[in-house]
Design a binder for these strands. Structure first.
Lengths: 347, 347
DNA sequence: GCTTGGCACTCGCGGGAATCGAGTGCCAGG
DNA sequence: CCTGGCACTCGATTCCCGCGAGTGCCAAGC
């Protein structure tokens, strides 16, 4: 019995604290919620919750504030993910449906997320490693200069220039094009790399070939560049951030909260780590405060999830203060991830 | 005579204020600079400068602070653009030389600029309107599904899918490809659009055609999509922002300075306007405080310049507090713009 | 006529004391 | 186990005052 009420008290404290941004006391709690007990009783419960580590009081004579552990319990057991209203859902889909290409999808997503949650939004580009090759095109700009265009299932397009040591006849080009596409089209990146290297084994040791001054076979040169483009992990790491203006709402605690966060947002590596934890199961992942390796971000939470087929393509999410509206934020993140997944599937 | 010393005093005040971030008084001025006069004399000069609107004192008994007008005079007449050290120059070129494509150039530039100036950096993507068509490629993914790849002189690549109502034979595709390239390659975007529309006049009125349910000629469909891609002003507006972590150094005045700036940074339109003023002559443009239409940005300055051939391709620059190191910042902006121009020229 | 030392004056800032009040813990009674 | 009462704590707010950097002005000097 008391146990149940204590959880209700915790939930009420989290909700009030998120709404008012001020430590919440026993009196205001009973006023704002139908708890049907007196403030004194609440005080006892709060003392117990504090004993267990779910609450904390900044000063002896102040109200209570949830700890990270308190938020964790709230997120795991006390909050129900509020479903999006149909109006919100319509807004999401109509906003994302207007996207013309992958870049546009990513940028629109980040904008949408930051507006829905009023937090800083982060969207990772679809990872190369999970996508498949849709098509490879070779274009002869001049007889000895090829443009390679690599089109992936996610809509990503990579292009590279290749200078050949020799000139290449149109017929040979067409033959090479079809051989390459036969080998790679439809394959996962990793498999395509293997298949291409099997096509032109000499490309496996390009350094020694070139050092020896030998003329590089056109096929080998093309394969080498393609493999390089496919293994280019720089592109894997691309991330788009939006809604930093929402940081202005932090108000207090500029140095302790905003500054480290701004620094983290510039560090793609950190962001990728934070998002990376979320790429696993289909659910929305929440990292609260000091959970995880980054002490500087002790007062920020990350709400993220994977998207794409199996939610395994890449991640998106938001970064905000631990004092945030978790149910609403989680719902928004989940909804956007779903729509993005659907759009990527269709295109 | 006195006029000359007064300007020296203004310069000294600007330099000290930028360095110390505190209003500067007559006594500390004579201590830190070789002015060879007494504080009382300086006070007279400062009173005169204030009379003319170059200085301002926050409180009756405080030191002086430059006004926007004071900074303006400093920038226009009193500061010599400090040339970059050779070490800095080497760092710039080696950092930018590593770029693999246009995206990479832009992202590296923004990062470099923000690190050099310790301010928020802004780089606009090369404008479509000033670039020329390097090559157009048509790829038949299936007989009725074409991929258009549009390669511009700036390294930008746009791609579009076109669904045809009919199937297209390889020969016809090759013919169409060469006709299109003959018409458009090497042309400015605007000219290319005109040339393409002349090629397939029926594309001029696509809406009525489609409404009438008529079968669209493949050439017309391709041209229509190409023209659309070329006129896509969305891409024109792309801007990359970096170094927002430097906002943390604003320290004071979060609400008056940082918040509006963060908001402006999210508004691409505002950024474009701010940068746009700079695209003209080859010089570095400085907008100080309230100069210009944005009252919210009254305590921030913009240092920007064009880049690319004739400095007319697009703009890059930084946004920072009016209290900034103008000579150093202008030098950095100019240097980065030059290197970026050179790299775009080469590739 | 410009420069300089002297001098009275201003006023923001920092520190300390007093006050206020929201909130707590505890206890005794229901 | 809940509740009302009560003494207590302590951060925040306000007020006050003295300090001192800096100014403006003036009369004397170069």
């Amino acid at each position: 019995m008391q146990e149940e009420r204590r959880l209700a008290v915790l939930r009420a404290i989290v909700e009030d604290y998120v709404a008012t941004e001020e430590p919440v006391g026993s009196k205001s709690l009973v006023e704002r919620h139908q708890l049907n007990v007196s403030p004194a009783t609440i005080r006892n419960d709060m003392a117990a919750l504090e004993e267990e580590g779910y609450l904390h009081q900044p000063h002896t004579s102040a109200g209570r504030v949830p700890t990270d552990k308190g938020y964790r319990l709230f997120v795991d057991r006390l909050s129900t993910v509020r479903p999006m209203s149909s109006a919100e859902r319509r807004a999401i889909s109509s906003f994302l449906d207007g996207a013309v290409d992958l870049d546009d999808v990513v940028h629109r997503s980040v904008r949408l997320l930051s507006q829905l949650t009023r937090q800083v939004a982060v969207v990772q580009y679809p990872t190369l490693s999970r996508s498949t090759v849709r098509h490879i095109e070779l274009v002869a700009l001049t007889p000895s200069r090829l443009l390679l265009v690599l089109i992936l299932s996610t809509g990503r397009v990579e292009q590279r220039l290749v200078e050949l040591d020799t000139e290449l006849a149109d017929d040979d080009l067409a033959a090479l094009r079809s051989r390459i596409n036969l080998a790679a089209t439809g394959e996962l990146i990793a498999d395509a790399v293997a298949a291409l290297q099997a096509l032109a084994p000499r490309a496996a040791e390009p350094a020694s070939e070139q050092e020896a001054g030998a003329v590089l076979d056109p096929a080998a040169a093309v394969v080498e560049t393609l493999v390089e483009a496919m293994s280019d992990h720089r592109s894997d790491e691309r991330i788009v951030v939006g809604g930093t203006a929402n940081l202005a709402r932090y108000g207090d605690s500029f140095d302790t909260a905003v500054r480290p966060l701004l620094e983290a947002l510039e560090e793609q590596v950190v962001l990728l780590k934070l998002l990376g934890e979320a790429t696993s199961g289909g659910a929305v992942t929440v990292r609260i405060g000091t959970e995880g390796p980054y002490e500087e971000l002790s007062s920020t939470s990350v709400v993220a999830t994977g998207y794409g087929p199996g939610d395994a393509l890449a991640s998106l999410g938001i970064v905000g203060p631990t004092r945030m509206d978790y149910p609403g934020t989680m719902a928004a993140v989940r909804a956007v991830a779903r729509y993005v997944s659907r759009i990527l599937d269709e295109s």
